[in-house]
Amino acid sequence: MAATDSSDRLGFLLSFRGELTGARIRAALGVAGLHPRNAMTLMQLAPGAMSQRDLAAALEIDPSQLVAVLNDLESAGLAERRRDPADRRRHIVEMTQAGAAALERVDAAVGEAERELFANLTAEEQDVLRRLLDRVVVDRGDHDCG
């Protein structure tokens, strides 16, 4: 069997670059003391309040995982949950002013990290990369991972 150059293996290359990129983004998120999932939650809440169920769907995470994220964000004063007056069974989630300030710091730090990460790509190449990554199948739901 012939040895394969790791750079020929697209999955390996994407995984390796992904780990390096993830480390860079996590370091940028450290500016606001946020875990990536917490930052993504704040980003999702930036346009305005939304139901907890809709937020879980938008983030593509299990509602029980979202509860833990929201507990962290509420403890830090970055988001708050309240009962929906129209339906007391629903929770509405909203970013606080402190959350908005943290998100501004995150946005600036992540923006700088992205400028460094993608400095060798033109704006057009970045758009192509974004479209290609959107097409990569990560979880088809038809396999057993463990």
Rank of each mutant, 00 (worst) to 15 (best):
V67L: 11
L70S: 05
L70Y: 12
N71G: 14
D72W: 04
L73P: 03
S75R: 10
S75G: 15
A76Y: 11
A76D: 12
G77P: 00
G77L: 08
L78K: 09
L78R: 07
A79R: 05
E80S: 14
R81S: 11
R81K: 08
R81T: 11
R83F: 03
R83V: 13
P85W: 05
P85A: 02
P85E: 00
A86N: 15
A86G: 12
R89C: 10
R90S: 14
H91R: 12
V93I: 01
V93Q: 02
V93M: 05
E94Q: 15
M95R: 10
T96E: 06
T96D: 12
Q97D: 15
Q97H: 13
A98D: 09
G99K: 03
A100Y: 00
A101W: 03
A101I: 04
A102L: 02
L103F: 07
L103A: 05
L103G: 13
E104S: 13
E104K: 13
R105Q: 15
V106F: 10
V106R: 04
D107F: 07
D107E: 09
A109N: 02
V110F: 04
V110S: 02
V110H: 00
G111C: 09
G111H: 05
G111K: 14
E112A: 07
A113S: 03
E114K: 14
R115Y: 00
E116C: 09
F118E: 05
F118R: 10
A119M: 00
E124W: 07
E124A: 13
Q126L: 10
Q126M: 08
D127P: 04
L129E: 01
R130V: 05
R130C: 03
R130K: 15
R131K: 10
R131F: 10
L133A: 06
D134G: 14
R135Q: 12
V137P: 12
